[in-house]
């Protein structure tokens, strides 16, 4: 118990003293994961809409595939991308392995199925009449698309939070694709794994606190937004 309390106290000291190494790791994590999810959102929305409202050959198969990808372990994504990006791999010439780009690519692939499936479910749960009402009122497809997005905004936010939570805390793919290089590809989860293996629990706890704080903030934000959208303000 003493070691836990001492580690927590040291963790807070590291965080609030502005330890540059800790804050650099935090910055790398947020930068890579934020970019990954930003890149994943547009294709995920288009795919989810196509799956929900489209009627094309292979639609059911695609839904099955995306649902399957939900449960693919991060290390499998990491391994697959490692092979693709390694020197002998088809994209080896781009020399992306052990870069932040490779980490971002892995995180993109991890959160894409989450976003697609959750937005697809939100669209299925939403009244199809929203789309039809927009269209019959004269909205273009794009306008109707954004109208429906607004109607499912809470489901959309839940998808974003779930996706972000998944990628910012995943360790397998980031470790394999980034290599946990100090000051470059070391992010929060890979740093926690490293510090724990070295017995430096305080650093690990400090980074864990940041992840917990992030979870608290995004959930508080979600609750606030949901409150704003309540039926009778």
């Amino acid at each position: 118990m003493d070691i836990l309390l001492a580690s927590c106290a040291e963790a807070f000291r590291l965080l609030f003293s502005g330890d540059p190494e800790i804050w650099e790791i935090i910055a790398i994590s947020f930068r890579v994961s934020s970019l990954a999810i930003l890149c994943a959102v547009p294709p995920a929305l288009v795919i989810a809409f196509s799956l929900a409202y489209g009627n094309f050959f292979g639609r059911r198969l695609l839904i099955l595939l995306f649902n399957t990808f939900l449960s693919v372990p991060a290390v499998v994504i990491g391994l697959t991308l490692f092979i693709v990006l390694s020197r002998q791999g088809p994209l080896g010439d781009f020399k992306l392995l052990f870069t932040q780009t490779a980490m971002g690519l892995g995180q993109f692939l991890l959160c894409l199925p989450i976003l697609v499936c959750m937005v697809h479910v939100a669209l299925q749960a939403a009244d199809r009449a929203a789309w039809e009402t927009a269209r019959t009122l004269g909205a273009s497809r794009v306008r109707a698309f954004f109208t429906v997005l607004f109607e499912i905004r809470f489901g959309l936010m839940a998808a974003l939070l779930a996706g972000y939570g998944r990628i910012i805390s995943e360790v397998g793919a980031s470790m394999m694709l980034g290599g946990n290089i100090a000051h470059y590809t070391r992010n929060i989860p890979t740093a926690i794994a490293l510090e724990t293996s070295k017995g430096a629990f305080a650093e690990g706890i400090a980074l864990g606190i940041v992840l917990l704080f992030l979870a608290l903030m995004v959930n508080a934000l979600l609750q606030y937004v949901q409150g704003k959208g309540s039926i009778n303000p």
Partner: peptide
């Protein structure tokens, strides 16, 4: 313009 039996309210 088509009006649903149960009009959809945004």
């Amino acid at each position: 313009m088509y009006l649903h039996q149960q009009p959809y309210m945004l």
